[in-house]
Computed example of a mutant assay.
Amino acid sequence: MNRRTFITTASTAAAATLISTPSQAALASIGMEQAPLPYPPEALEPHIDAVTMGIHHGKHHVAYITKLGDALKASNLKADNVIDLITDLSKAPADQQMAIRNNGGGHVNHTWFWKWMAPAGSGPKGPEGKLGEAIQSTFGSIDDFKKLFGEAGTKRFGSGWAWLIVKPDGKLAVTSTPNQDNPLMKGIVADADLGTPILGLDVWEHAYYLKYQNKRPDYIAAWWNVVNWAEVAKGYEGAKA
């Protein structure tokens, strides 16, 4: 291989790496601390009840952090940014990787989730500006997007998440992951589902069962009333920058 061929090949490989890797630069670091809810537990009623929010944030999320801490201690690891850890599990010993994946994912996903919601009427009722234009351009209409996103959540067998992501090429996509996986987890999530999450919906039963029982579609329909579209637009702008 001559020098010119080497440079061309190396440049192509580097570009491919950049294209295939979701952008994390737009995402704030997440440490081991749990932030308080950005609103009172009852603020999302009647769409999401205060009891569910208290249990979800105060017990389930706390449990993920506690178990993640145990796994890190057993691994002799620290996590200044849990996102970095769950997107490169090779840093952890094999016998702790699943615990870090599940509980680190649970901590990260829920940290985002609380910010993606806000009291009904406190902000835009739907996606506006560049985000709104991109959703309409990609999915045909806001309603078509909501239908596709809702189906991703409804059809997710068992527990998991529905996501709106910005793919490495800058385009929007709707996807879903099982358990506490998320679209940043390269090597775990299929390449077609990789991207920067800008909106996610928790469809584990603990997120809705007290109020909606087995009626997951009703929970999803109600949840649209408390989506923090200003935060989603902020994430979109950051992912596109």
Rank of each mutant, 00 (worst) to 15 (best):
H57I: 07
T66V: 07
H61Y: 07
T12A: 15
L68P: 00
P40Q: 12
S20G: 06
G58I: 04
N76I: 13
A63I: 02
K67W: 05
T12Q: 07
Q24F: 03
K73L: 07
A50W: 01
M53A: 10
Y39H: 06
L68H: 03
T66H: 01
A35K: 08
A35Q: 12
A16T: 11
L44C: 02
D70G: 06
S75H: 05
M32R: 12
A28V: 12
H57N: 14
K67L: 12
A35H: 12
L72W: 00
H47G: 06
L18P: 00
H56W: 11
V51S: 10
H57C: 06
V62Y: 04
E45A: 10
E42L: 09
A43M: 07
A43T: 05
P40R: 12
M32S: 08
S75I: 01
P46A: 15
T21Q: 07
E33H: 05
H61S: 15
A71E: 00
P22A: 04
T17E: 05
E33L: 01
G58T: 12
A63K: 01
S20I: 10
M53L: 13
T52F: 00
P36Q: 07
L44F: 06
A43H: 01
L72V: 08
A13V: 13
A16I: 11
G58W: 03
A15L: 15
Y64T: 13
H60W: 07
H60M: 13
Y64W: 11
T12M: 06
D70V: 05
V62W: 04
A15E: 10
Q34P: 05
N76D: 14
M32V: 08
H47Y: 14
A25W: 08
A63T: 09
L27H: 12
P40A: 14
H56E: 08
Y64P: 03
G31R: 00
S75P: 06
A26Q: 12
P41H: 11
V62H: 08
M53R: 03
P41F: 09
I65Q: 13
S29G: 12
Y39L: 10
N76Q: 10
I55V: 15
I30W: 00
E45T: 07
I65N: 02
L44Y: 02
I55F: 12
I30G: 00
D70W: 02
I55C: 08
S29D: 10
P38A: 11
T52S: 11
H47A: 14
I65P: 00
Q34I: 15
L68K: 02
A63Q: 03
S29Q: 06
A14V: 10
Y39M: 06
L37Q: 10
A50N: 01
M32T: 09
